[in-house]
Every structure is written in C-alpha cells, then in structure tokens.
Design a protein around this nucleic acid. Structure first.
Length: 423
RNA sequence: GGAUGGGUGGCCGAGCGGUCUAAGGCGGCAGUCUUGAAAACUGCUGUGGGCCCCAAGCCCACCGGGGGUUCGAAUCCCUCCCCAUCCGCCA
C-alpha cells in the first residue's frame, strides 16, 4: 500500500494513477477521513493526558474521601477516552481498507492503457514446421508423459500426474534454474508451501472472497501459497536490517496453488492453466535507488534461462491497466507455443517498490543515519515448470511425434530424445 | 499434541501495581584531551501520531500481537503468536 501521508498530500496524482490503471478507489474519502482522524486523535490525547494527571494525583493523596472523588473523575475520563478511541479505530480501519485498495504508483516509462508493448525477442527464432505441429496435450499422450484422467479422479479437473521423462524434465528444469541462480549470486531456498493469511495479504493476495485465487486451509489462518514470492517476501516481515546487506537476492522453489476462479475457456486445456505447479522464483530486497536496475537484472536472467533452453519468446512491457495492485512496473516473457499458434505467458517480473514492504513492515537502517525506511521488493519467475513443459514439448517436437530434449537439460534427463513407449 | 521456562529500546539485560519520565552495560553519534589515533571523561542516541506553514517545543501511544481488570499495568488475568528445554507422535 501507499504511504497514507503521500496519498493525502498528492491526492490528485494518486487519483490520476488509479484512473490510468482502471482501478476504482475513493481517494477523496481517504482525505476526508484523515481530517476526522486528526480531530479524534487530539481529543483522545487530551482525555488521556487529564486521566494520567488524575491517576498520578491519587498516588500522592492520603485523604480517603479525596481519593474516592478522584477515582470517580478518573473513571469518567477513561470512559470518555474509550469512546473516542473506539471511534478513532473505526475511522482508521475504514481508512486502512481504502488505502489497501489503492494500487502502487506506475513507472513513468510503463505503457499506459490496456495494450502490451513488445520490447524485444529472444535469441531463438520461431521454428518453421514442415508438418502440422501438435499441441502439448497430444504429444504428452503419445509419449505417456502426463495423466490428466487419473489426476481428475484423485483431485479433480486442473490437476495432473507427470510421468516418466516429464518427471525428470521437471527436476531438470528446477536444477537448471537453480544452477543459473547460484551463478547470478542468489541464495537458494526451498520454501514453505503454506503461509499465514497476513503474509499473503501483505504481498497483495486476498485469501478470502468469491474471486480469490487462494486455497485456504480450514480451521487455520494458513493458505496454500500461489507463488514463492509470498514466502520469500515474508521472510523479512517485521524486520529491520542493515542497509549493507542489500541488495539481497533469494531463489526459492515451491509448489504453487491457484484456484483459477473465474478462468474458463480455451486456455484451460492441458498444463497451461492448472491448480498446482512447481516454480523456481527469484526475489530481491533492495535499496530504493537499486530497484529499477534490479528489475532489468531479473528480466535479463529470465532471458538467459529461456535463451539457454532454446525456446523462442518475446519480452512484454505490461501496460498500466494490467499491472495489478503491487507492481510499479512489470515485464513478462511470453513463449511461442506452436500447438496454440500464439505466445503464452511463462514468466513475470515486477518491481513492487515499497508497496509490499510497507504492509509487511520490512525496513532497513543506514549506519550513522537516524530512523528506518522501507526497502523495495522485486520478484520474478525463474522457471514455472508446467508452462515451461508446454513450451518445450511444442517447440522441440519432431515429425514422428518424438520430442528432442533441450541440450542444457540432458545431463539430468539422461537422454537426448523422448520417444513413444513400446507396449 | 502435552509440560515447564521465556519474549523489555540497534544489541545484552534489570524491573514484577503509583518517584518507569524503563536502571545498568555494549554499540553508534558529537565534544574535551591529542600531531593523529586509542584510552579516559562529558553529552546525545527508538517508532508512530497530534498541535504547528516549518522548526523549536509541548502532548499522546507503544515493554511479542490482541483483549480484559484497575483511578493507575512492562508488572495482574484471558487469548493468540514466537523461542528454549523435556515428553509424546512421526517421514
């Protein structure tokens, strides 16, 4: 969320930003509530001050009648203070809700509106097929790599068993990504797959509500994570760290769980949109003046990963209307998927500036300077396994229905080609 | 899951109903001394909010989170979270 004072002092700018993002937020109400808040705060302070004076006097008073009279006065003052405080809390909580609905500011260079802008293409050219390319569902069936039907019996639509080489491909992709992250100076982690709802909310997810993407665990305040961004960002929740440990780059592997509520239609086929997948995520904590260049770095690493895999892709500069609440700027990689005949999103990297850090209370301190400040947070996909499998199968397919294994994965898959199984 | 002991300022640590306006130490900053540094000595050193154009100043809140008792809570009670140790269970 944005800083309250910033919103009050820059109401016009914030309103304009909401409009550009297509978000409805009641900035005027926030301004009005802030005036009420100040008035109530002053009132409460005055009542508390007098009640404190009275309490101190009682401690010094010997005369019993005088003490009783003072107690009565103290009781009255505390009652008034309690009423003022309840009203103050009501105002603050309404303001908090409104503030949370206000999206982050937008990078001046981000495209405005709804149209994505293609920034560049990856190194691998889009392949011209001399046969009609199959989609990944057909390929997986022929090669016995995925069992959707059995998964539907076990967990319902949107789940899958990976089988045979697909399992090795999953492990290989995780390992391949991890090796690159080590080389890029990241600290590796494997993270919890569940997190407290307050952490989810701090990162910008809404665990409750009809349109939620989040699975909650009944009887607890935990939810299944939709991305390791949640757990990695949560690692420093409520912490104050020395500025000299920044930037801090973490890589994390986790399972990701998404209800995909409201997502229907053609992209729901196969592995493209599923309720659970494995993902290697990048996360960075930075000083404010480091986050712009860190976003470029995360995007560069994503390109390195997918250039290395030999998958054709384009880099998208996400427009203001599609940024979501926390992101200040966002780049997506979209892989060419021959079976669909179009590009499909495979990674996403965002600079969330101090939007998440403010909600989660993630601060830094500079030696010799007074006070603490909120740091910046960024996240980016290294490898989302399910969608990357789609891209590999469809781009590496051969006329005979076999699939060539990308060279960089062969050490872990143990073969250079996946062929139909002998019955 | 059960039992016990704990969570206090950047860190360590005292306090266990009213001189807490939180002792003391460490660290940090400034100064004195010094050619310079160290040592010693002196002072300052948390966050949020209100009054205010700003500053100074004054005031309010904050001792893991939330709630309660009381005229008054770091201190007593309830609850949740976390840490430690032991027991149980378990890959």
């Amino acid at each position: 969320m944005l800083d309250r004072r910033f919103v009050i002092d820059n109401a016009a700018l914030v309103k304009e930003n909401c409009a550009r993002r297509g978000v409805v937020a009641d900035v005027d109400r926030v301004v009005a509530l802030d005036a009420q808040r100040k008035a109530r705060q002053s009132e409460l302070d005055a009542l508390n001050r007098r009640a404190n004076e009275v309490a101190r006097e009682i401690g010094k008073t010997a005369d019993p009648a005088e003490r009783e009279a003072r107690k009565e006065e103290g009781r009255r003052l505390r009652e008034q203070a309690a009423a003022a405080e309840a009203e103050l809390h009501r105002i603050e909580s309404e303001m908090e809700q409104l503030l949370r609905a206000i999206p982050n500011l937008t990078h001046p260079a981000a495209p405005i509106g709804a149209e994505p802008v293609e920034l560049r293409r990856g190194q691998t050219p889009i392949r011209q097929f001399d046969f009609p390319p199959r989609d990944h569902v057909q390929l997986a069936e022929k090669l016995d790599l995925v069992d959707f039907e059995a998964a539907a019996r076990v967990a319902g639509h949107g789940f899958y068993f990976l089988k045979n080489e697909a399992v090795l491909l999953e492990l290989a992709l995780v390992r391949y990504a991890m090796d690159i992250l080590v080389d890029e100076g990241f600290t590796l982690t494997s993270t919890p797959d569940l997190a407290r709802n307050e952490i989810l909310e701090g990162i910008g997810f809404l665990p409750r509500g009809p349109e939620t993407q989040i699975y909650s665990v009944e009887g607890t305040d935990l939810s299944l994570v939709a991305t390791a961004e949640i757990t990695l960002g949560g690692m420093l929740a409520g912490q104050v760290v020395d500025a000299d440990i920044l930037p801090l780059k973490l890589g994390g592997v986790s399972h990701c769980f998404r209800t995909e509520a409201g997502a229907h239609g053609r992209a729901t086929r196969g592995l493209f949109r599923v309720h659970q997948f494995t993902k290697v995520e990048m996360f960075a904590f930075t000083l404010p003046d480091q986050s712009d260049s860190m976003l470029d770095e995360l995007c560069r690493i994503e390109c390195r990963i997918f250039d290395g895999l030999g998958i054709p892709y384009r880099v998208i500069d996400t427009p203001s209307g599609d940024l979501g609440g926390p992101a200040y700027r966002k780049f997506d990689l979209e892989a060419w998927m021959p079976g669909r005949g179009e590009f499909g999103e495979i990674t996403s990297t965002s600079n969330c500036t101090d939007y998440q850090a403010r909600r989660l209370g993630i601060r830094y301190r500079v030696k010799g300077e007074k006070g603490t400040r909120f740091m910046h947070t960024l996240n980016g996909t290294a490898v989302a396994v399910a969608r990357t499998l789609v891209a590999i199968l469809e781009n590496y397919q051969q006329a005979d229905g076999s699939v060539v294994v990308p060279e960089v994965l062969r050490p872990w898959v143990g073969t250079d080609r996946i062929v139909p199984k002998q019955r």
